[in-house]
Simulated assay, not measured.
Amino acid sequence: MQKSFEQALESLTTPVSCVISDGFLGWTLKSAKKFGVPRFVFFGTGNFSFTMYQILGTERPHAGTNLLDEPFPMPDFPGLKLTRNDFDPPYNDMEPSGPYVEFLAEQMAAAAMSDGIIVNSFYELEQCYADYWNNKYRPKALCVGPLCMAASPPSQALANPSYTQFLDENLAAGEPVLYVAFGTQAEVSAEQLQEIAAGLEQSQVSFLWTLKPKGLGFLQKFEERVNSRGIVVKDWVDQQQILRHEGVKGFLSHCGWNSVMESIFAGVPILALPFMAEQHMNARFVAEEAGVGLRIVPRSGSVRGFVAAEEVERKVRELMMGVEKGAEVRKKVAEYRDAACDAVKEGGSSTRTLDMLIDEVARKRQTFSSGGRAVCCPDGQRLDSDHNRQQA
């Protein structure tokens, strides 16, 4: 892949100015050095989860624990306690090992030698974690989100999909709709999905659930029982279009980071039900750090495990109609929605950071064109100082 990538760069009419690489393609660091251009990495996660995983690996605050659900304090963050189950296997082991751990260590080493981490977030949402990372680790985290702002409008074919009528009718009737989606990667058991369905049915809340129907024998009778109050969409949906619909007032989500950012930008509170990867860390951030959502708790009391219908019902009703916690998260997500909008406006934090990044790349290209070296200084000094001024 590296050879083909470099051949593609060589074939460009205009010389490449920088490489923005998926964080799991560490070999692009060598390609960037070969072409004398800076390399920026993108992992698709937020500052909070990225920082917590880094602290776990470097400082091992969990070393004294005996159980996966035993809380331990996180260094430098008073009051923040996590458990090993907040981290995805194999990183919830005391001594993670194996090919995946070795592979990820190589990617993180390449990231540390790069010129910046591009983060799909905005500074006001994760300020203390972005500052902590930038003061303690390399390379600098550059918050340029929410990136969903850059999404193209839907094509004409998708401009008015069939489910829009359902949303419009509920909006006209004054019935708030809960959007339910768990992403495309997580494998959720049929038993768990059936329990979620029972909770949705018992909640008496209107909902739109996007779901792959394969192997779900209970689905037909479920759809018949909920009738016009809820619909199950079995095809691809435009998630951003749904979240931005005025009638959608809640999002039962797996807490993939893109979904979190899209929901915050739309001003829709989140009901967190994570399944894999860094989703459990994102769920903790949503419910406990940012306060833009609630979290469904498994029957075991752990952050992992089987979720009962009664818990789904209770949390759905609280999110959509609650006058205490539900009202608090609805207010908080509206505040962060406004902050997200401000961040991407002219002069906003994300816009300033992106402008600074582009200016820095342009300076390096000019240096290279005049015969100098375009490679970043090892500590990214100019980028770092500019970035600090932008956030001041």
Rank of each mutant, 00 (worst) to 15 (best):
G247E: 04
Q202D: 14
E169I: 05
Q194F: 06
E246H: 01
T184A: 15
A181H: 08
P161Q: 08
E169T: 12
A150G: 09
Q220W: 06
H245V: 06
R244Y: 01
F207G: 08
A181R: 01
E224H: 13
A190Q: 09
F182D: 05
A186G: 11
H254T: 05
L208N: 06
P154V: 07
E223D: 04
P153C: 03
R244M: 09
G174L: 10
G174N: 06
Q185H: 10
C255P: 06
H254C: 06
A172N: 03
F207P: 08
K234W: 06
P161V: 09
S189I: 01
T164P: 00
Q192A: 06
L200M: 13
A181F: 03
L243K: 06
Q185L: 13
K249D: 05
E191R: 10
W236K: 11
Q241D: 06
C255M: 04
F207Q: 06
A181W: 00
A198E: 15
V232C: 05
L252N: 13
L171N: 09
V188L: 10
R225C: 07
P146H: 13
N227C: 11
K234H: 10
F218V: 07
I196C: 08
T210C: 09
T164M: 12
V144M: 08
Q192S: 15
G174C: 14
L216H: 10
P139A: 07
E224W: 01
G174K: 02
Q165F: 12
L193T: 04
D168R: 05
